[in-house]
């Protein structure tokens, strides 16, 4: 690049990537608002906030492991299993010991399942040194099977209304409860990724496995912990999504695997590892949710919507590839 162009070029380059996604999101919202004024109605905005908060959790679950140059294909199975199991616990405990304990035990079961799935993945990836793609492919298959087996393939109804209210419908200071939980988790994740040794180790791990080993940190523990975090985040998504649908669904998470990876990568995480902050799942979730809600309002054929998401996914990955090449 010539010398004259450099001063303005640097500014644009430094600011450009940070502005690109917010601008794209605003652009999508404005576009659909022009086509369908309902896009900006109060109900729809609350809907966008809720949906993107739910989606944020799975994207974030994906981010934690993508940073370490891994994957988590089991997030969808995790969501499905958590949905089914927590619903079953709630409906079983409620008549005997009351609603409050039922909800508490259901939520506890859900989180515990997320923890266990994450721990299984983590043990196999970090201590067994097996490729994360294969590990999570296998656990995805196993836990999807468990979810359909224990539920018999049918949804579980009659969840307490208080559960749906507490985890989906409640609005505090004009903010829906999923958004508040997402905000708290986003802050905690941001803190742990940028301010703690654990976070630094994850980025170093993604950059270069050897460097992390040489640096003397107990790499395996941190890698294991990343998968556990991912599992717990996915289980939170499972609980919140169950509260939204009001029933335990054995295939609640089926479409989430690809979309969660898409959201994290579109948001700026790189599959080559070592990069991507908390903004990646936030922007990625907002973009995909705004797009799909907009396309629904515009009544675009349901089969064509994934075509748009797929094209954007490839476009985002191409941008990432070009950025990497430039580096």
């Amino acid at each position: 690049m010539s010398d004259q162009a450099q001063p303005s070029g640097i500014d644009l380059r430094a600011v450009g990537p940070h502005l690109l996604l917010p601008l794209a999101i605003v652009g999508v919202v404005v576009l659909f608002a022009l086509l369908q004024p309902a896009m900006l109605s109060g109900d729809n905005i609350v809907n966008i906030m809720k949906q993107s908060s739910l989606f944020f959790f799975v994207a974030c679950a994906q981010l934690v492991v993508i940073i370490t140059r891994g994957f988590d294909l089991s997030v969808g199975a995790n969501v499905s299993l958590v949905s089914v199991a927590s619903s079953m616990v709630m409906t079983a405990v409620m008549p005997l010991y009351g609603t409050g304990l039922g909800i508490a035990l259901g939520v506890g079961t859900g989180l515990l399942i997320g923890l266990v799935i994450g721990a299984v993945n983590g043990v196999l990836v970090a201590y067994g040194r097996i490729n994360p793609f294969i590990v999570t492919l296998a656990t995805m298959s196993i836990f999807t099977g468990v979810a359909t087996t224990i539920s018999g393939g049918f949804p579980i109804f009659n969840l307490p209304e208080a559960f749906s209210y507490a985890f989906n419908q409640m609005i505090i200071l004009m903010l829906p409860i999923p958004l508040i939980i997402a905000g708290l988790v986003a802050y905690a994740m941001h803190f742990s990724l940028t301010r703690t040794v654990h976070g630094r180790v994850l980025y170093v791990l993604g950059d270069s496995n050897e460097v992390a080993h040489v640096a003397g940190r107990r790499v395996k523990e941190h890698l294991f912990l990343a998968y556990v975090t991912s599992g717990v985040l996915a289980s939170i998504a499972g609980l919140l999504m169950t509260a939204q649908t009001g029933s335990g669904e054995p295939n609640l998470g089926t479409s989430l695997v690809l979309n969660s990876i898409a959201a994290a990568v579109i948001g700026g995480a790189s599959l080559r590892g070592g990069s991507g902050g908390i903004s990646a799942p936030i922007y990625g979730a907002l973009l995909i949710v705004c797009l799909s809600i907009g396309m629904n309002l515009q009544q675009i054929n349901g089969s064509l919507q994934p075509v748009v998401i797929g094209a954007i996914l490839i476009f985002g990955a191409a941008l990432d590839a070009i950025k990497t090449k430039a580096r």
Partner: peptide, 30 residues
């Protein structure tokens, strides 16, 4: 996309998968 643009094969083939499946679903209408 993989060999020339050097995009991660995972992303590329997930993308083309959703596109191809979407087109197949759209053309048949289910």
């Amino acid at each position: 996309l993989v060999s020339v643009l050097k995009i991660s094969p995972f992303m590329v083939t997930i993308g083309t998968m959703t596109i191809a499946a979407g087109i197949a679903g759209y053309v048949t209408g289910g």
